[in-house]
Amino acid sequence: MGAVHILRRNGGSRSFSHHLRAAGMPLLFLASILATLAIHRNFGAFDVQSLALGALPLAMAATAQAIVVISGGIDLSVGSMIAVSNVLSASLMQHASFRQSLGLAVLIIGLGAVQGAINGILIILSRIPDIVVTLTTGFIWGGVALLVLERPGGGAPSDFLEIGAGADLSPFLPNALLLLIVAVAVIWLPIRSSRLGLSLYASGSDSVAAFRSGVDPRLARILAYGLGGIFCAVGGVSLTMTTGIGAPLAGAYYTLSSVAAVVIGGVSLNGGRGGVLGPILAALLLTLLPMDLIFLNIDPNYGQVIQGTLIVLVVMVGGFAAFLQGRS
């Protein structure tokens, strides 16, 4: 009888902050689109295209970060890994043909997987917390990027750049957005729905319980960081595609912004919860903001302030909800 009683009492109501997390990001994104339309009446295909182009690398960074965070880690080397693939692709593709460029892109994405896996392996071998290891490897990959290309330069064949710039299907469905969708759909979705994906969520949620359920948390960690590395590399190559050059210091922005996108996108930093959609929408939002500021003739440098404020506000609202709940 006690059993029935308990069953009934716990019947399903979820917390307010949970709802907030789940619904917050799409609502916020919708609001910012509406705001953009209000500010910029002529917002059209061209702007959609430049938004998608601008947001592509960050969306990739956000996806990478989200996967790592879901599995219980955090990757502060995201920016540097993007920088490495960016300068690698720009320097290797400079004199390559279109076909060679495609091959090189695949190669670099493979290297990204290795790079990410190295992060995971180092965390396991060194037994130092993720945050310290990736802060340090970020430093190291940053050095590697500088080694490949000391100052901004390089390039890629124009056909290759066209892939990202065009809008072959519909003017409102730019290729950059398609690329984003394809990358996520081909790499992440199959994994997510498999037992492998479950094991990522499981080890992020409770690594001991996961181990007892037959997951090897070390493999899961390497896998998560490896996947993160893949998405970083896609981000780095797409940065080359969208900017046409490689810049060894361009990555710095993506580390902090990827964490911002993950937090704003509603993924719990405790691991085990959330998905990649929220962070991707957050990445679009974070790219849209400076664009809006330019339309409004406001110094786009405010973008960084707003980004920081957004992070703080989003986490504070979550905390505030929990705070109120604790009171009542």
Binding site: Y201, D206, A209
Partner: peptide
């Protein structure tokens, strides 16, 4: 030894 953020069914599949 059940993973808190997975459903019971997912735990069994795991």
């Amino acid at each position: 030894a059940l993973v808190p953020d997975l459903t019971i069914a997912q735990n069994m599949r795991l």
